[in-house]
């Protein structure tokens, strides 16, 4: 775990894992919560729509680097969107989820991308597009190519998964984590230093909101 600080460990705290904040976004019932549950508990159940947001943490180890994912699983229902918006802030990564058997949800994922684009500059955030529910191959409405094409055009990571069949779920999170680590190396430990800056931004956003109201 801690024996690897070879590459780019930032100053101090060699034992501290990297902490990354990840948000899951997508329309309702595309399987956002199911993906997290599969990752964390390796389980699958029919579950009710998420209320508001749910917060999970997951430790991972990639190439001998320990990292901690703080995952914000947001509700897909529109009534919770403003609450979820709160958790965009300071995110290091976003997982855009759509249901391969639901064209609309793919469209929604693209809209989410636009929102992210407005909030973040491309090098601020790692985004992975996930087409979930490959177990519903028979009623597929979004082809693998469509998903891939969109992801490539926007330089997103891409993966198709099935939380139900446990197909490529961990892989998707691992790919994301790997990319996060890679960026971390390039930027030389910005996450830790980034905190205060994010806080400043936070207050500004809130103020703006009030004014708009």
């Amino acid at each position: 775990m801690a024996q690897t600080k070879g590459n780019t460990q930032p100053e101090g705290a060699p034992h501290q894992p990297f902490v990354f904040k990840v948000v899951l976004l997508g329309s309702s019932s595309v399987g956002k919560s199911s993906l997290v549950i599969r990752l964390i508990k390796n389980d699958f159940k029919e579950i009710l729509p998420t209320m508001g947001c749910a917060f999970f943490t997951q430790m991972m180890e990639i190439d001998n680097s320990a990292l901690k994912l703080e995952i914000w699983d947001t509700a897909g229902q529109e009534k919770y969107h403003s609450v979820c918006h709160l958790y965009f802030r300071g995110a290091n990564a976003a997982i855009l989820v759509y249901d391969i058997a639901n064209k609309d949800s793919f469209q929604r994922a693209q809209n989410w991308w636009k929102e992210l684009e407005n909030e973040f500059s491309p090098d601020e955030i790692v985004v992975i597009l996930v087409g979930n529910k490959t177990d519903l191959e028979d009623s597929r409405e979004v082809t693998l190519e469509e998903g891939k094409a969109f992801a490539e055009s926007k330089k997103l990571l891409f993966m198709e998964t099935s939380a139900k069949l446990n197909y490529q779920v961990t892989e998707a999170f691992t790919a994301l984590a790997r990319e996060l680590l890679k960026r971390e190396e390039q930027n030389g430990g910005q996450t830790q230093q980034g905190e205060p800056r994010v806080d400043l931004k936070t207050t500004r956003i809130v103020k703006n909101k009030c004014c708009l109201d």
Binding site: S33, I40, G52, C53, A54, F55, V83
Partner: peptide
């Protein structure tokens, strides 16, 4: 709404 009893919900 918390069938799994996992995670911390904020709503």
């Amino acid at each position: 709404s918390s069938a799994f009893r996992a995670g911390e919900v904020w709503a």
